[in-house]
Nucleic acid binder design. Structure first.
Length: 155
DNA sequence: GCCAACGTTGGC
DNA sequence: GCCAACGTTGGC
């Protein structure tokens, strides 16, 4: 199994929203970047674990908790819906979504988030994509070592 | 709210 | 296939 990190703006969809969702599960809509899509489409497997990262969240910016992949990639129907904020005209015109979702279920929320500044100052996490300047990738791989360090920091 | 960094689009 | 223009991301 593999480890991942996915970003979300908590104003739009937070870890608490995930906890409140039916079966604590949601389809991860709205990824509109090819590299991020390809990770989900080609590499996400049921049972993989995911850090849920809150971006644009002030002092709370950072990793809020852990989710689990419960369903592998399938077409993102939001891309086909003109009323959705994630509507994609090209997908609609082609009659098939070029974007995918995976389903994730909340595993546990951290007591306090592992903040971005914490990640930046923790040895062993320097190479994480999330701390690289200008790195905007919303779905990124995490190494088992990085995963372990962050879980430890959360406890 | 600013703006640097980056990805995508589309004219040529 | 290049690349300028544009839109978005996301920290600050």
């Amino acid at each position: 199994m593999r480890y991942w990190l996915m970003k979300t703006e908590p104003d739009v969809f937070s870890f608490d929203d995930l906890l409140r969702a039916p079966k604590k599960t949601t389809s991860w809509e709205g990824v509109r970047n090819y590299q991020a899509r390809n990770f989900m489409r080609d590499d996400f497997k049921v049972g993989d674990l995911v850090f849920i990262y809150h971006s644009n969240a002030g002092d709370e910016t950072g990793i809020a908790g852990i989710a689990e992949v419960v369903k592998g990639a399938y077409g993102d129907q939001a891309a086909m819906n003109p009323k959705s904020p994630y509507f994609d005209e090209k997908s609609a015109k082609a009659g098939a979504s070029r974007w995918v979702v995976v389903d994730v279920r909340a595993v546990r929320k951290f007591k306090t988030p592992v903040t971005l500044s914490q990640i930046k100052s923790t040895p062993g996490l320097e190479r994480m994509a999330v701390v690289q300047k200008g790195q905007r990738l919303s779905v990124q791989p995490v190494t088992p070592q990085e995963w372990g360090i962050i879980e430890k920091a959360a406890d």
